[in-house]
Structure formats: C-alpha cells, structure tokens
C-alpha cells in the first residue's frame, strides 16, 4: 500500500491499465494490473526499495504480535502496545524517510538524504527510549 504513496506512480500509466479493461475476465484484469504494477515498481531506485522492504518487515512484525495477542490475550497490555507501536512507529518514520529521500518529491529537493537519514536515526532513538520506558 505504501507504494501508492509513491508520487512517482504516474498518471500516464493509467492509459496502460485502460488497455486491459477490455478483457472479459476480471482475473485477467487483476493479473494485468499486478504485472503492470510490478513492472512500474522495478523502475524504483534500490535505496527506496530497501526502505520499502524495511517498512514491510516492520509491519509484518507488528502483525505477528497482533496475531499473538488475538490468540493468547492482551496481558500484559503495555508490552503488547510497546511491541506493536515500536514496529508501527519505525515504519512511519521509514515512510517519512522515504518521502524525503525520493528525488521525485520536489519540495525535499534541497534536503540531502544524509540529513534525512540523520533525522530518521534520531527519531528512532527517541521513539525507542519511550518504547523501552513503556515496555515495563
């Protein structure tokens, strides 16, 4: 879903999608859609892909914890919150990093990626200090 935030995802690509719309089967439509998405995503720079991977990793870890809570219950609730919020928080921060690092985002053109990375590190450290305090 983060991919949809990608401003690089162009409006011009929509013409390509409309081409498949004529096809009778919805499955084929979906297949075409995924193929076009994969193709478009392949053009994404590697460093952004790394960040996407990191976001996926964080969200997946959060999901595992949510599933665990669903199975055994919410006690101790603060530990559950800490674990989930740690993952979600770092994922949000990674998204922010991605927005700043992306060269297609003109408003962050003057901001060097190193500076963005430094912000990311600082925010993560502050976030995890709070998480550790809340972990109990």
């Amino acid at each position: 879903m983060l991919i949809f935030f990608h401003s690089q995802f162009p409006i011009s690509k929509r013409s390509e999608g409309s081409r498949f719309a004529k096809m009778p089967k919805a499955a084929a439509d979906a297949k075409l859609l995924i193929q076009s998405l994969t193709k478009a995503y392949a053009a994404t720079p590697t460093n952004l892909k790394i960040i996407d991977l990191y976001v996926l990793f964080a969200v997946a870890t959060a999901l595992v914890q949510v599933v665990y809570m669903g199975i055994v219950g919410s006690f101790p609730f603060n530990s559950f919150l800490s674990g989930v919020l740690s993952c979600i928080g770092t994922a949000v921060l990674a998204v922010c990093l991605r927005i700043q690092v992306n060269k297609d985002n003109k408003e962050f053109k003057d901001l060097p990626p190193e500076r963005a990375f430094a912000d990311f590190v600082l925010c993560n450290l502050v976030l995890h200090l709070v998480i550790m305090n809340f972990l109990g």
Binding site: L53, L56, F57, T61, V67
Partner: peptide, 19 residues
C-alpha cells in the same frame, strides 16, 4: 511466536540480498 517475529527479519535480510 518469539520465533515468528524473527521471520519478517529473515525475510527482510533475504529481500536485501535479492536487491
């Protein structure tokens, strides 16, 4: 589940290698 939380991390590492 402790082991399960490690799975995404392993997936992350594999993904990194793939990239």
């Amino acid at each position: 589940f402790t082991g399960l939380t490690l799975l995404p991390f392993i997936g992350f590492l594999i993904g990194l290698m793939r990239l």
